[in-house]
Write a protein that binds this DNA or RNA. Structure first.
Lengths: 227, 227
DNA sequence: AGCGGTACTATACGCGTGTATAGCCAGCTG
DNA sequence: CAGCTGGCTATACACGCGTATAGTACCGCT
């Protein structure tokens, strides 16, 4: 393309970059379907036609945003890992506050079915699986499920940001809110919540229900609603 | 007009109930905005005008669906609690498979901003907070955040069902898939994943980055004494 | 100066959406 | 039977959407 992507100072003034950044912000906030091209172009201060001129379509713009955010994320993470500045990923936003928007965007992208975000999710599952088998091999016998659950919860709690923020009284996509959430998350990771014996007992009791035929439509639809 | 096949007892239910049930299924699958009234009425085998006749508007239909699902959920839970059939909520779908659709619906409702679902979320946070302070008072110093995180993760992992299911190779909204996920979840709840000392150290290192005003909820700011 | 191309705007088209309206038909009631 | 009520359909309206197209201003090049 005509635009040198490597020069951030130049790109930031470009209308193309303004459209992309506005789209990232609006997509992160309201999702793909909840954002119109007119919303984006108005936020960027340009006409709707220019979006098509630069990106071709809304879907192509979305892919461009996906790539931009994902690249920014890996760049920041690489940079911080190299500098050894951060001890735990949960506290990362304290060092790099701008990453919160990227988190929000990726979370929405996961919900909106973005292939790029899904690929990132899969990568994180694999990485987590490897980490568990190496660093905490005794926590489970099902590494795959454990890793999937772990990554799913990590991203899922961000998907529930509205409700978690309401319960906390502070937006978890601000530095303060995110830190408070990360603190509870750290407690969660470092302390056992349930008694292993109790869990094992419950699991054993429920096991016979798995293999045999589950109850059919016998208990279906208790509310026939004749009103 | 031809009826969609595969739906048992299709004729037995009133058109109003068919519309509601079709809406619940489609809302759970594609969300509110991803479902058109024509989709619903076609799935219910009626004309679009009938939806308006019975429910007034799409929004009113959504509220009716919210109430119906939520009532069904509390009814099932009460029933099972009374019968003492279930040891852990995670294994509940093994006993009552039809609850999985309700789970899926409520999860989507949370993402779509349903007030009823949000109220349910808040209730669960309060209940969880009370449970923690009574049954596991030592896992954290910030009960509120811990409870919010717990409920947020529980619902959030369901919000990420597409990705978790893909990682597991099985749909977590089937009985088998849900049981596998619940198993990993049980492991997660009953074993400590991180070393508490390491977490405390990381928390202390990050503490100076926090903004001047610490949260003022239950108890003192966790890790405030860290260096 | 003249030319070509690119950034950008104004405007419109086609479509799908939620919603509104008019009318049909069965069943009950007098 | 006549008349009315309510479940139900067919059709249309107004609007917002993504997208397409025609046209304009500006900049570098020869």
């Amino acid at each position: 393309m005509e635009h040198p992507v490597g020069d951030p100072a130049f790109e930031d003034v470009t209308a193309r970059a303004r459209i992309r950044d506005a789209a990232i912000r609006l997509f992160a906030e309201h999702g793909i379907d909840g954002t119109t091209v007119r919303d984006i172009t108005q936020a960027a201060g340009v006409s709707p036609g220019l979006l098509r001129h630069h990106f071709g379509s809304k879907e192509a713009l979305r892919e461009a945003c996906d790539l931009h955010v994902l690249n920014r994320l890996v760049k920041i993470k690489e940079e911080l890992v190299l500098e050894g500045k951060v001890a735990s990923p949960g506290f990362l936003p304290a060092v790099h506050p701008t990453i919160l928007l990227s988190y929000k965007y990726v979370t929405r992208a996961l919900l909106d079915g973005s292939p790029s975000a899904a690929a990132m999710f899969d990568d994180m599952v694999v990485l987590t699986e490897q980490w568990i088998s190496k660093n905490a091999p005794d926590v489970t016998e099902d590494y795959r499920a454990y890793a999937a659950v772990l990554v799913g919860m990590q991203s899922g709690i961000l998907a529930m940001h509205d409700h978690v923020s309401r319960a906390l009284g502070v937006d978890i996509f601000t530095t303060d809110g995110h830190l408070r959430m990360a603190g509870a998350l750290a407690d969660f990771y470092s302390h056992s919540l349930l008694d292993p014996e109790f869990v094992a007992k419950a699991r054993g009791a429920m096991e016979p229900l798995r293999a045999p035929n589950p109850p059919t439509a016998a208990g279906t639809d208790p509310g026939a609603e004749g009103a």
